[in-house]
Each structure stands twice: as structure tokens, then as C-alpha cells.
Computed example of a mutant assay.
Amino acid sequence: MTDPTTPIQEPTLWRDERWTARVIKNEDDDGWAVSMTRQGDAEPALVGPWTMGRDKKNPKPLDTAAFHTLVKTASEVLRRHEQQLHARLNKSVSVGVGSERIRVSLQIVPDEDNPYAILRAEDELGEALGEVRVPPTFKLSADSAAAWIEGGYQRPSR
């Protein structure tokens, strides 16, 4: 068995210590595709069309420039996915209470067996005012945050 971090530079397979590019037959048509998989990941981060070679039958061989472009593109795809997941799991609103603003945040913890969320309130200086565990389905809005604050930071009723 070969070390999965050993560099490979073949016409249809390139690998460095972090990424593997593999040119594959496109099952949907007569063309070719390339998949980019990060070491340790089960699924490719990116699969896209690949250019035909000069003979219009075989794929164009991978080269250094193409590999680096593919790494950059696949890394950007992963970064966007991470940003989207973070935005889906973390929400916040600001609520005016008297002359001050209170920031209320909801952080969802997507545990497979027991998912939950943390509802947290902080003043303008970042000092904690309250924190409770709530269901991951809790809907954070300016109204629900204000009601929680008015209720003395007690666990909201379902």
C-alpha cells in the first residue's frame, strides 16, 4: 500500500500532500471530468468538466498549472460551504432595551443524537447577560429576543 501523501504526477492523476486530482470518464456523455478530493475526505470537493486532448478522444493530460488552478477552485468551494454552514448554525439580532442595545445570538449545535442550541445575550461591551439551552428549532427574531430579555433570560417556553 502506498502512502496517500506521496506526490503523483501522471496524465490523469495528480496528488500532493493535500489534494488529489483525478480525470474520469463523464458518464453523461462522451467527455471527461476531473474530481478534486482533499486528503482524508470521503467525497470530492469539486467535480467538473475536463478538456479533451488533441485527438478529441482522450482527456488532456493534467499539468502543474491546471492542478494549481483546480486546487484553488476546490479550496474556494470548501470555504464557501463552511461559510454557508456557519451562517446557517449561527444567527444574531440586536434589540434596543431602554438606551442600550443587547445582542442576542443563537448557536445551533448539530449533534446527531441530541441537537440543541445556545441562546445568549450580551451587552454592548460583550458582557454576558444571560444564556440558556433551547431546542435547535428555536426561531430567533427581534420579537423572540425581546420577549426572552423581558422574561429575565429564563428558558423560553416552547
Rank of each mutant, 00 (worst) to 15 (best):
Gly31Ser: 13
Val77Ile: 09
Ala128Pro: 03
Asp29Lys: 07
Thr73Asp: 04
Asp3Pro: 04
Thr37His: 04
Thr20Leu: 14
Glu124Ser: 10
Arg80Trp: 06
Pro7Lys: 02
Asp113Gln: 09
Ala45Arg: 14
Thr12Ile: 13
Leu129Thr: 09
Asp3His: 10
Gly152Met: 10
Ala74Arg: 02
Thr2Glu: 09
Pro110His: 07
Ala21Met: 05
Ala146Leu: 12
Gln154Thr: 02
Ser35Trp: 00
Glu10Pro: 02
Met1Tyr: 06
Val134Asn: 10
Thr73Cys: 10
Asp28Ile: 10
Pro4Val: 08
Gly48Asn: 07
Met36Arg: 04
Glu100Asp: 10
Trp14Glu: 01
Pro156Lys: 06
Leu129Met: 12
Lys57Gly: 00
Leu70Pro: 02
Arg80Pro: 04
Asp41Leu: 14
Pro7Met: 08
Pro11Lys: 11
Val134Ala: 04
Asp29Thr: 14
Arg155Ser: 02
Glu124Ala: 12
Pro136Ser: 11
His81Ala: 07
Ile24Tyr: 13
Ile149Lys: 09
Val97Cys: 07
Val77Arg: 09
Pro61Ile: 12
Ala128Lys: 13
Leu129Glu: 01
Val104Thr: 05
Pro115Ile: 01
Ala117Trp: 05
Asp3Ile: 10
Ser92His: 15
Glu150Phe: 05
Ser141Gln: 10
Ala128Glu: 01
Ser144Cys: 09
Ser99Ile: 12
His86Tyr: 14
Asp111Ala: 07
Asp28Val: 15
Glu82Ala: 15
Gly152Pro: 03
Leu46Cys: 06
Leu70Arg: 03
Met52Asp: 03
Leu62Gly: 08
Lys56Ile: 03
Asp28Lys: 15
Ser141Cys: 00
Arg18Trp: 07
Arg101Met: 12
Lys60Ala: 14
Asp123Met: 01
Asp113Tyr: 13
Ser75Phe: 05
Thr6Arg: 07
Asp143Thr: 11
Arg15Met: 14
Pro136Thr: 00
Asp28Thr: 14
Ala21Lys: 05
Glu27Phe: 12
Ala87Pro: 02
Glu17Val: 12
Thr5Leu: 08
Glu112Ile: 10
Ala147Trp: 03
Leu119Gln: 03
Gly126Leu: 01
Glu100Met: 11
Thr73His: 12
Asp41Cys: 07
Glu150Pro: 11
Thr69Met: 11
Thr37Trp: 01
Asp3Arg: 10
Glu100Lys: 07
Glu100Ser: 11
Val23Glu: 02
Ile24Cys: 01
Arg155Cys: 01
Ala145Val: 06
Phe138Arg: 02
Gly31Ala: 06
Gln107Cys: 08
Gln83Asp: 06
Glu27Ser: 05
Val47Pro: 01
Pro61Phe: 04
Arg38Thr: 11
Ala87Lys: 15
Ala87Glu: 15
Glu82Arg: 15
Asp111Glu: 02
Glu122Lys: 08
Ala66Val: 00
